[in-house]
Design a protein around this nucleic acid. Structure first.
Lengths: 185, 185
DNA sequence: GTTTAATATATCGCTTCGATATATTGAACT
DNA sequence: AGTTCAATATATCGAAGCGATATATTAAAC
């Protein structure tokens, strides 16, 4: 999905500045299926303004550049929903962590130990975080955010179980190779 | 991870042409954590050749451009493994399917039904595929591919359970909105 | 008093993606 | 026998996007 469309997806939920759109991609439900940095958001939202998909109100501030609050228009909504009516295609998953594990037998055992230990802590924290959201905000009406929350919890739990289970084997493979001095770079 | 490094990751497993590197990103274990199209592989591998990270042997063919078989060098291995010793960062997950579901109440109920039904069939097929690989090739020595396989199976099973469970609610939300004629684009 | 984090906007160059072009072989179908 | 289709194989180009960086202020934390 291009950044222009994901920005419209944020704006359909309410008016926002470029900075606030960015935050939506970094935290909250959007972070689980979309992204975009400043370097893509600002040009994308500017490109959406000229054909009238969004409007921009400048909100003056003292000693600071004017805050630009963007609002979606009917044309913007139309663009968003017609794009969503196209084939979504496959999901994409990218992981430098799994990429590194693939070569565990050529990397130092300490490093493998470190990244797996860190990852386990990360997943535990993320699960806790997603479980807590439930107790505070979620209700049955907002089905999509609930689905995304469930998906996150299930995914992190699965990964946690698998890497906890295989941790010792990966470290053993790395140590084993160090003793043999074959693939070591 | 940049394409040059992921290409080196494929070549460390054995010599390959650009076309074969592409196939590794599309099918097999690499597809679960890395990617790259022709448009990025060819320039990346060419850029890796000049400093000597890979060597290229031209294999002449009749009535066809010469096949270029790339092989990794010690320098290439060093580059790969030193890159893998850096912080892998967070995993990335992108999904136009979840993006569309987020606006289910503004999309036609038939469309929501269609994409969920398709996705359920897709996940079932992918699970079957990953389970079958086990029976044919996998052994306990190749820990990383096994981990990736397990991760895939667990992930698809989790998603399958969640979307099967929520399917009716999503369609109901879409139908509900059509009756109210509010958000309909 | 100083440092750090958060708010806020924006640009620039390098990388990467998607679409497209070209050409041949072999299998499958009619 | 002829045709179509999928796979093999290489490669380019423009559009899009990413990461790093720059600037500036406020408020909280130490």
């Amino acid at each position: 999905m291009d950044v222009k469309t994901t920005c419209l997806g944020v704006l359909v939920m309410g008016n926002a500045t470029g900075y606030e759109i960015r935050k939506a991609f970094e935290y909250g439900p959007f972070a689980h299926f979309a992204d975009g940095g400043f370097g893509s958001i600002y040009p994308a939202i500017a490109k959406a303004e000229s054909p009238g998909m969004v409007t921009c109100k400048k909100h003056k501030q003292q000693k600071r550049p004017a805050k630009k609050i963007y609002a979606i228009t009917d044309m913007g909504r139309e663009h968003l929903f017609s794009t969503l009516k196209k084939d979504p295609g496959e999901d994409k998953f990218r992981s430098n962590f799994l990429f590194a594990l693939y070569y565990a037998d050529a990397l130092p055992a300490e490093w493998i130990d470190e990244i797996i230990t860190k990852r386990i802590a990360d997943y535990k924290q993320k699960i806790e975080c997603l479980v807590n959201i439930n107790n505070q905000y979620c209700d049955d009406k907002n089905i999509a955010p609930t689905l995304i929350r469930h998906k996150g919890i299930e995914y992190y739990k699965a990964m946690l179980g698998i890497i906890s289970n295989k941790k010792d084997k990966f470290i053993a493979a790395a140590i084993d190779n160090r003793n043999n001095n074959i693939k070591q770079p």
